[in-house]
Amino acid sequence: MKCKKCDTTAVINMRQHKLALCGEHYLEWLPEQVERFIEKYRMFTRDEKVLMAVSGGKDSLGLWDILHRLGYHTEGLYIGLGIEQNYSDESRRLSEQFAAARGLTLHIVDVEDEFGATIPELSVISNRGHGKPCSVCGLNKRYIMNRAALEGGFDALVTGHNLDDEVAVLMQNTFNWAGGYLARQAPVLPAHDGLIRKVKPLCRIYEREMTAYCLVRGIEYIYEECPHAEGSTTIYYKEILNRMEGDRPGAKLQFYISFLQAKESGLFANAEQHVELHPCERCGQPTSAPGDCSWCRMWEKVKLAKKTVTMLG
């Protein structure tokens, strides 16, 4: 197959766009697309300073590379979660290596060093998540990212959620008719009540495209999946969606764009819920819970449990 732009051998064929490109033109094309969506959804400008949430995976490292190439003012945030099987150590090494090679600033928050337990330990002690640390992990990441972005004076927090992530969530929420969640899903979550603006520049980029970008660009990323991701709902929905995409190229993109259009026309307006937020009495971060936020309550449990162990020991 030939590159549509220069007639040399193509390295990727994007059936959903009826477009095949060689490596050189692909490395030009993808950043142009990302910039188009940053502008279309008014995510941020070159005058603003944004914090890129980095996991060491293909999406966040690939996106950080693109934003850097496009000349945006970015700094990175890596959260050390303490995931077993060398997963966190390796993802941190790759994130640090990436930032150092480009002279970019990477902020690191190590959960165990800062707060006293790894995420898997926290999940067991707090007894949340039905034996899986994913919900505890999500809560901690959201909390730490928001706090770091606000304290660092950033204008927005950037995450590497790609189109496949977005449609997997969309499909799950559609199957459950989870109106409140559908009403909130968007490329941009505006800042309000102590929450930083959150943006997803890859919301219309397939994860296949991000993998190809990293391979062609030579970006080393963590290839192995988080050991806790096995059997996850996201992967389940992604498998179904990829079967549909195989039969009908563009199905995922069409699902997402149609959703955004339906949302724009007010289809989910009645499902929008206004949640009253106020500062947590302990840490000051926004919460919908009365008194202390669930993050503070969770870590308070850990402190108590560790104190009890020390006393008994």
């Binding site: 998540g129 919900s135 999500g138 994860e207 993998t211 996201t234």
Partner: peptide
Amino acid sequence: VAVVSGGALP
């Protein structure tokens, strides 16, 4: 090379 990644979104 696998392209799919993702944890639970509970």
